[in-house]
Design a protein around this nucleic acid. Structure first.
Length: 404
DNA sequence: AAGGCGGGGCA
DNA sequence: TGCCCAGCCTT
């Protein structure tokens, strides 16, 4: 045993202080029980076809904060389009982003490509086996490191995600708040004790399957669990107290005017968002933050009211026109009222977008738009990656203006 | 340690 | 509606 490893063990012993660990005999029975259940009940998932590190890696990145059912079609499509680490490393970013459209957390795919390029340059095109090396790759944190090491390479590394923390907190009646990042190491320490050294990948995945099928956040029925005899909170009748998880802050409202501008050729003005931050490098109709738009829309008798403060309608139009001319160099004829309001909830923001429609009549007025903007015909929209709010604006436009 | 970063499914 | 989900990066 190296010096570094023994230090980690010492540290984790301290963390475990207060949480009584089971005797080895009980640990052995637990492993056997859980793995037997997994052998029978495990889900047939595309990335479980073999132990190819690339296949496992892609699935783990997609599954971050994303449900299995959502991921499957994206996964199949992605593996078809980018079947190897090399293909991923050499892909064009906009093609990559398009393959990720709708999955969310788009920096995941940009980081994954950077990691693929790291692997081509530093590791001869092969995913490294050493967890220390794996965790150096962009976008791969403690969880994904453990997942790849255990599932692809059979190493006894913990892979602690939300499922594992929930299951463990119920098994051992752990009061630590699982929303606090610092508490992850408690659960890692326990998993290092529990993990089956011969089938670490199956062991980790058994926790995932248990967490998503039986040991769920809601509608939890501990009496149905294959490991109920090991479940301390079930035996003590305290299971409804676990896990302890502090609440997240509410999404902050942000108000925009969305300007759907059509030119004489029937093309629409699209803008590429900045390369960093929210929805980086994705395409939307011009969005103008508008503080006067401080009301949620009410649709009464087919008419949209309440989107803007009363008496401020004219001011909103003036602001929008000024911004369109200054930033986008267009002077469209604009509807005096928005035709719809689109709402979109992110994890930390809630957008309210009052959608206006306008046309640029004269051809020469639409010639000098900025570099990050294009006039795009709807038949070419497929080549542009649209985030949720953009798709909602476009669908609303189609339903209002494109019928009959 | 806290906040930014998507989107959909569910009661 | 609010909460949840096979988290990671930046500050």
């Amino acid at each position: 045993m190296t010096e570094i490893e023994s230090k980690i063990d010492e540290k984790e012993q301290k963390i475990l202080h207060g949480i009584p660990m089971w005797p080895q005999e009980k640990i052995n029975r637990f492993r056997e029980t859980l793995l037997s259940w997994y052998d029978i009940e495990k889900r047939d998932l595309p990335w479980r076809k073999n132990n190819d590190p690339y296949r496992i890696w892609v699935s783990e990145i997609m599954l971050q904060q994303t449900r299995v059912d959502t991921v499957i079609p994206y996964y199949l499509n992605f593996m078809n389009n980018f079947p190897t680490i090399e293909a991923l490393a050499n892909a064009h970013e906009d093609v990559l982003l398009k393959a990720w459209e709708g999955l969310g957390y788009y920096s995941r795919v940009r980081n994954m490509q950077k990691a693929a390029q790291q692997i081509m340059e530093d590791y001869d095109g092969e995913m490294p086996k050493d967890p220390k090396e794996i965790s150096k790759l962009k976008g791969i944190g403690p969880y994904t490191t453990g997942a790849i090491a255990s599932m692809a390479f059979g190493l006894p590394e913990p892979a602690v995600d939300g499922n594992v923390m929930r299951v463990l907190s119920r098994l051992f009646e752990i009061d630590a708040d699982i929303a606090k990042p610092g508490n992850r190491k408690i659960f890692e320490a326990i998993m290092r004790e529990l993990i089956d050294p011969y089938k670490p990948g199956d062991f980790n995945q058994a926790f995932m399957d248990l967490g998503s099928s039986i040991c769920t956040p809601k509608n939890y029925h501990p009496e149905l669990s294959p490991v109920k005899e090991f479940n301390q909170s079930y035996q003590n009748g305290t299971w409804d107290k676990y896990p302890v998880k502090s609440k997240k802050k509410k999404a902050k409202p942000v108000y925009y005017v969305g300007a759907i501008i059509k030119n004489a050729e029937g093309a629409f003005l699209l803008e590429k968002r900045p390369e960093n931050g929210l929805l980086a490098n994705m395409w939307t109709f011009p969005l103008i933050e508008e503080e006067s738009v401080t009301h949620e829309a009410e649709i009464k008798k087919g008419t949209l009211t309440g989107v803007t403060d009363e008496n401020k309608t004219e001011q909103v139009i003036k602001n929008v026109m000024a911004e369109l001319e200054a930033k986008y160099a267009v002077k469209p004829t604009l509807m005096e009222q928005p035709f719809d309001e689109v709402q979109h909830i992110f994890s930390h923001l809630k957008w309210f977008v009052a959608v206006y429609y306008g046309q640029v009549v004269k051809e020469e007025e639409s010639m000098f738009i900025p570099e990050n903007c294009y006039w795009v015909h709807p038949s070419d929209f497929d080549h542009y990656t649209f985030p949720g709010p953009q798709t909602k604006m476009w669908q609303s436009y189609l339903s209002k203006f494109n019928h009959n």
